[in-house]
């Protein structure tokens, strides 16, 4: 597995698509989620209507709200980018037929996939670190520009927030990886993953979240569980009873961990047993 991990690290570092995806993630988070939000809420349009005044809403980009704001943003764009990253890492091996070249070398199929999984755990860890650091820095710059005062979350809360971010990134990446192996096609893996995320989770699940019977099924969806974890980091001005989650954060964490293991095992099972033939 170490040999495979070393090979994966070289491929991952030198693949421009990975850096571009990471760049898109950071740019979207910082520009849309912080800079643009700050500018708009600092100079709200005349027809701006909200139960919370703009000057209060503006505080969502300040350090005191670092975790809830960052997690809310990463739960959509972050999840989408991680699905693409995971899908690319496995499906393109089939597209280029490099899966064949790799398997003719010496490693077992298990070692190849475990090397890939280990690399993605490392990559998602590094992305989480940089994302947290970049959003924190932007938040600090904005509060300084604003001339306001704000406090940072405690070290323990920061650690928990970082853990939540990493876990969610890892689950969506593993989901993309699994789809890449199941479909053996980059387009199908990414298309399928994004459709599930935006149509299945964001649209259908949200519409049906109060429907009895369906609600029980929704409690098991990864997006619903990720939202529950994110909701445990509350904006300072948010009413604690404003939104209700279908599950609590602990159950959310356990469910996401189960998904992580399940996607890895399913990918391994398919990869181990299936024939490798040409496109």
């Amino acid at each position: 597995m170490i040999a495979s991990l070393r090979a994966e690290s070289l491929k991952t570092r030198k693949r421009w698509a990975n850096w571009i995806l990471f760049g898109i993630l950071l740019l979207t988070l910082l520009l849309l989620g912080y800079v643009l939000t700050y500018v708009l809420l600092s100079h709200p349009p005349r027809n701006f209507r909200s139960p919370v005044p703009a000057r209060v809403l503006k505080r969502s980009v300040f350090p005191e709200n670092l975790l809830p704001n960052m997690l809310a943003l990463t739960s959509t764009i972050g999840a989408a980018i991680m699905i693409i990253l995971g899908g690319l890492s496995t499906a393109s091996e089939y597209g280029w037929l490099t899966v064949q070249t790799i398997l003719i070398q010496k490693p077992t199929r298990g070692a190849v996939l475990l090397g890939k999984l280990a690399m993605l755990v490392i990559v998602t860890f590094l992305i989480s670190v940089v994302t947290l650091a970049a959003t924190a820095l932007t938040s600090y710059v904005l509060v300084t520009i604003d001339g306001s005062s704000s406090s940072w979350p405690s070290a323990l809360t920061l650690l928990k927030g970082f853990g939540a971010l990493w876990l969610e990134f890892a689950v969506w990446t593993a989901f993309g990886m699994f789809l890449g192996i199941a479909f053996r096609s980059t387009a199908a893996a990414i298309g399928g993953g994004l459709t599930y995320l935006f149509v299945g989770e964001a649209l259908i699940a949200q519409l049906l979240r109060n429907t009895e019977g369906v609600k029980e099924i929704l409690r098991f969806l990864p997006g619903i569980n990720a939202s529950a974890i994110n909701a445990s980091f509350r904006l300072t001005f948010q009413n604690p009873n404003a939104t209700t989650q279908l599950v609590d954060a602990t159950r959310g964490t356990i469910t996401l961990l189960a998904y992580l293991v399940m996607f890895a095992l399913l990918a391994l099972l398919i990869f181990q047993r299936r024939d490798v033939a040409g496109g």
């Binding site: 491929k11 693949r15 790799i102 040409g278």
Partner: peptide, 29 residues
């Protein structure tokens, strides 16, 4: 003990020839 090229030479298009061999050398230890 086996070296093989089956059907078509399949490598990573974004890597150089040398880097592709480095990847394969790492896989093969």
């Amino acid at each position: 003990r086996l070296g093989a090229m089956v059907e078509t030479p399949a490598f990573y298009p974004y890597l150089s020839g040398r880097d592709n061999l480095r990847v394969m050398a790492r896989y093969s230890s």
